[in-house]
Amino acid sequence: MDTEEIQRVGEVIRSATSGFTAQCYELDRFPHLGGLVKTKNIGAQIYGIVFNATTGGIDPGRKPLARGKDEVSEEALYKSSPQISKLLKSEFEALVVGYKEDNKVFQYLPPQPAPIHSFVYLCPTQEVIEFSRSFEFLYTLLNSAVTLPHEELIAAVLRNMSLVQEDKHAFLVSAGKHLATILSGDFNRLRTILERIRQ
């Protein structure tokens, strides 16, 4: 929706054709698991699905230590050690599932990866609806090399997308049917997903 404020959630710090890693501007301010985010390269808008969010030290050699033993709350801990937020960073990974060029959405990999330092935005409702008209991206998700179970990720994506649909139930059923076709030989995986998206 045009009136909706487009929310910037981070900046690309590692880029590849099949996915990118973005750093959040604020510690622990991640987009949701399975959320649809977008970034840009020349002429195209690249869509990614958020799948792995992490927070760790800036310096890989220095591990965070527990500091709150004598503090009454987490806020108090940050107040007494203000350097923490500067020494830590939050990142999330996104899996590239498609792109938009000349106002057309394609649910396959873009010819060029996202440039480094390009900004990452959360997709607004209208764009989610537009993207979720086709379920071809589910195949990309199923065959991706992500570090968490595919079933979890797909279920999260569909739950997220269903929130903005006019007819949530019909959306989930047709997504389910698409999955049932892709997973026709593997009912157990299909069942795992279906059980995670039913209302």
Partner: peptide
């Protein structure tokens, strides 16, 4: 499509799963 559907049938009380499977699985 998958023999598992006959050997370990899904929860038939759930209309959603039944609806998804109808005509696909």
């Amino acid at each position: 499509t998958d023999l598992n559907l006959t050997q370990t049938p899904p929860d038939t009380n759930d209309p959603f799963i039944a609806e998804v499977l109808a005509g696909t699985g």
